[in-house]
């Protein structure tokens, strides 16, 4: 099976400071890859550089689009980058308020990406929005409510619906469950696990939570100080960590 995304020797520096350095990985269709590491390890920088939200200092990111053609993301025009983000990608932010449009209703938030793709049939937009609210376990009668009236967990589920409604091929997620309490977190993780399976999504998810990686990702990348210190099957990394930093991370997990 051929890769969907190829990252090679990717570096991003903030002036003299290293954001991430020399990162390479492949992502295959239908695969969820976790990037773990503590705060400041460069995982969010890496995610943003891969998703073409930040401009890398060196290295390349290639993406194979729906028609099979490989795109070099560094060489993309703004128009093409936005087209990809609209038609083939999704991005879920840690704080749902950054990913949602707070001054319009939940339904409009879900329908917006469809309208951006040119859908102009109100009743269909509405039916699709309702269907997706149900899929993320939001009562569809709340379709006309403002997201500001939703709890944090509901807002995050709304953001997931808004992102997945266009059936993207590749989704980037930046700590989608951080900042939510444990029961809410479990619900969102279960939801993500199910949707990723049902839709056959490929995804790159940043998390500091090893349990999240174990639940969702077949493969994991461990980062420290901007560099990849270990990469492989998630269960391998968690059960037989090789690098001192990974061993420290694994031994720091609280067990109940």
């Amino acid at each position: 099976m051929s890769a969907l995304l190829q990252v090679r020797d990717l570096s991003l520096h903030y002036g003299p400071r290293v954001g991430c350095e020399d990162v390479s990985f492949d992502l295959h269709p239908g695969e969820l890859l976790c990037i773990v590491g503590e705060s400041g390890s460069g995982k969010s920088t890496l995610l943003n550089a891969v998703a073409a939200q930040l401009t890398p200092t060196a290295g390349s990111v290639r993406y194979r689009q729906r028609d099979g053609e490989w795109l070099e993301l560094g060489a993309l025009s703004e128009a093409d980058r936005r087209r990809l983000a609209r038609e083939e990608w999704g991005f879920v932010t840690q704080n749902p308020r950054d990913g949602l449009r707070l001054n319009v209703s939940a339904g409009a938030n879900v329908a917006e990406r469809l309208m951006a793709l040119g859908m102009r049939h109100y009743s269909q937009l509405r039916a699709t929005a309702r269907h997706w609210l149900e899929r993320v376990e939001i009562d569809p009668t709340r379709i006309d409510d403002a997201p500001t009236s939703f709890s944090g967990g509901m807002q995050q589920r709304l953001q997931i619906a808004r992102t997945l409604v266009t059936q993207p091929r590749l989704v980037f997620m930046d700590e989608p469950t951080a900042g939510l309490d444990v029961s809410v977190q479990a619900r969102i993780l279960d939801l993500l696990r199910r949707l990723v399976n049902e839709l056959g999504l490929a995804a790159v998810m940043v998390t500091h939570d090893l349990a999240v990686a174990r639940l969702l990702a077949a493969r994991t990348i461990v980062m420290q100080g901007g560099r990849v210190v270990e990469t492989g099957l998630t269960d391998q990394i968690l059960d037989d960590p090789q690098h001192p930093y990974t061993q420290l991370l694994v031994s720091s997990v609280l067990t109940t």
Partner: peptide, 18 residues
Amino acid sequence: ALADYGLMHVKLYEDIAQ
């Protein structure tokens, strides 16, 4: 510049919804 006007329909959508 990109003629990316899906956003305008968000307002019209909100009108009909309300």
